[in-house]
Nucleic acid binder design. Sequence first.
RNA 1: CGGGGCGUAGUAUAGAGGCAGUAUGCAUGCUUUGGGAGCAUGAGGCCCGAGUUCAAUUCUCGGCGCCCCGACCA
Length: 407
Amino acid sequence: MLQRRLFTKTRKEAPKDEVSKNAELLIRGGFIHKEMAGVYSFLPLGLRVIKKIEEIIREEMNAIGGTEMRTAVLQNKEIWEKSGRWDDAVVDNWFKTSLKNGGEIGLSFTNEEAYSNLLTQYISSYKDLPVYPYDFKNIFRNETRSKSGILRGREFYWKALYSFSRDDAEHEEFYEKAKQAYKNIFNRAGIGEYTYLTRASGGSFSEFSHEFQTVTEAGEDTIYITDEEKKEAINKEIAKGNEGREAQAIEVGNIFSLGTKFSEPFGLAYNDADSKKKLVVMGSYGIGLGRLMGTIVEVLSDERGIVWPREVAPFRVHLILVSEDKKIRALADELYKTLTSRGIETLYDDRDVRAGEKFADSDLIGIPSRIIVGNKTIESKLYELKDRESGEMREVSLEHLIEELKS
RNA sequence: CGGGGCGUAGUAUAGAGGCAGUAUGCAUGCUUUGGGAGCAUGAGGCCCGAGUUCAAUUCUCGGCGCCCCGACCA
């Protein structure tokens, strides 16, 4: 993509109303735009990152049997009354509104009710189970205090998967698979080494749950790391002895066993092989994509800007032209065509601005690799390839360049 | 929801009861061109309402908005 097609611009100054590193860098780099407290729009660069994250999650969910669909955002209050979660005294962060011709509706803040209700139409036999539907969608929570940039918003994009199993044993088996899938996701997103499987409270759902906590000073939660090797921890809220290293962390994902808490009120049951009626055993598995994106920025950026891991970077390579010479521009244009035709996602900075500005912008935006085409390129016939993370610079031939960027 | 802070140009900031300044960004011209260049010219601004006052962007009150700490976080 040509850089000017992005239409966004980088900024030197941090916005005054953002203190968190994630929002500061993402706004300066042109990834997000703040609409109001806790609500952000995703600009072309930011949306590309979200889509990369989404694709990683989709692949991992499909790998464990997940089936993607999408539940509605506007929710009928009747189904929430069934589970007892419509009342403001029970859930205080609902966004509710009313229909023109009467009747209240709510904006979805989670999906348990929607899925439990919907599946009563399709689940009737043990042969119909287990199933693992999931969706990506925007969720609304009327937070009394949104904070920390995109880490805790009022509107956010998330993935929620629900498991519907025949019994506890079948549920446990899937639960373990989901744990591993989550580990894969955070590894691929580049924050695996900082992310701990953390035992936590189950809230109103169950006694315990598991959170995936990424260690960073920006974290809201306090955890005790109980096993550095296995990447395990316990949340302070349920810790008793307080053994282990204390750390601040961001909850990037969580998984819950729900038991029959929802299948019971919705009558989500099936006829087993013995012709007896049994309740479906459920689990829920969530990840906030914006929060994950913000966490990556918090953990991996440096003093010059963002450092995106390859799998979530908006582009694979940033091609930078640093000459006004027509021959050199033609060379860069040609290289851009070659790269894109080989399927290498390239952001091409052909703007008529000085080299220093392009380099600074490139550091801020944080694309993993950079190719610089200038006078030296014509002389040496080699392309300068620079790694954003290490700063290492090498001169390589066209074949090596493509080979490397393909990997 | 309790406490604290803050609203001045696209962005970041200074300022005073009486012509609102600087930087950056933007436009134009010239000079520059491998790490956010230089000079010149130009466009662009005091959150909203009420009160006090001859005069309010400035003081007072109310509203709205934003940030931080805490509470909450299915």
